[in-house]
Amino acid sequence: MQKILKLSELEMFKSGKILNINCKGEIKRRLLDIGLIKDTKIIPVLKSPSGDPRAFSIRGSLIAIRKEDARNIEIEEVKEIKEIRE
């Protein structure tokens, strides 16, 4: 029932689950370091004034990621009953 998206396509305050990180070397390493692995829950919670980058809630911390990088991260949307309000 769940659809596969790119992280860049995930709407604000919708919850996603990481499937695959296709970023290259350095960026992938940084993402792994902050705990972004398969099955990690990720929610976009902030948008910068120009719309990019966005900041995501990941394992209790807030991490800014650019669109170019988010495009290379595959996720599936998670339907949650309780969504984080604005």
Partner: peptide, 10 residues
Amino acid sequence: PSSFVLELPP
């Protein structure tokens, strides 16, 4: 441009 993976601390 390099990656911009930046933590916004509390």
